[in-house]
Amino acid sequence: MTALPDTTGKKLGLVIDLDTCVGCQACATSCKEWNTQGYSAPMTDRDPRGSDPDGPWLNRIHGYEIEPESGHDSRVVHFPRSCLHCETPACVTVCPTGASYKRAEDGIVLINPDTCIGCKLCSWACPYGAREYDVDHGVMKKCTLCVDRIYNENLEPEDRQPACVKACPTGARHFGDLGDPGSAVSQLVLERGGFDLLPEMGYKPTNKYLPPRTKRNTPQAGIEALPKGDGSAMDRLFKLADRLLSGAGN
């Protein structure tokens, strides 16, 4: 059903820290690795080792530069972008088949790969570019929030998180219930001033982004002088070696 639930029991989503993300692509590759064999399979890449590889990715890492204002350094921000599991997702309501739906129990937005007709209208309705077409499967693909991991009792409890969150080496990705103001992710959003992408579009994204922290704008300290020798036997030995080696070069 493409009608949206009035409320969802939980609002499961991600909080992505733009301050600590290093753009290593571990989240994107682990996402692809998990999803190409699970719920979203096949997710095939065409010409994967050729000059023009092409295939659906559910998570893509943009890079943005914040250009320097006078007296500031420029900085680069790595920016992972995936489905934001919006509260009012037009991608769901435009779906003619009911393949797209938002789960009432936890707010996850999913595509049923058995009923999707691959009309691509949902990708037109999404402002965030979260839905991609799988040519080999003939259906649309999107982030499932690893619905086949987070409730999976065959996995150890600590592994019941999205693959991207598990893979992140800097802890820049957090998973939890953003509908519960007391949850760790909600607290993190509150502390760090987490924000929505394109709030004026009115889609009410669940995922939040944490802004990069302000850099201390210290002037360049210049090259420091090398430490002076302390006159010990070892120090004199090194000096001798340095002289001999320098001399040998001439």
């Binding site: 943005y64 250009e67 204002e69 921000v77 920016f79 924000f195 992408l197 990069p212």
Partner: peptide, 12 residues
């Protein structure tokens, strides 16, 4: 507004 990174942002 799309990136939340302020006015001086550009794609890198």
């Amino acid at each position: 507004n799309a990136t939340g990174l302020g006015e001086h942002v550009r794609q890198w």
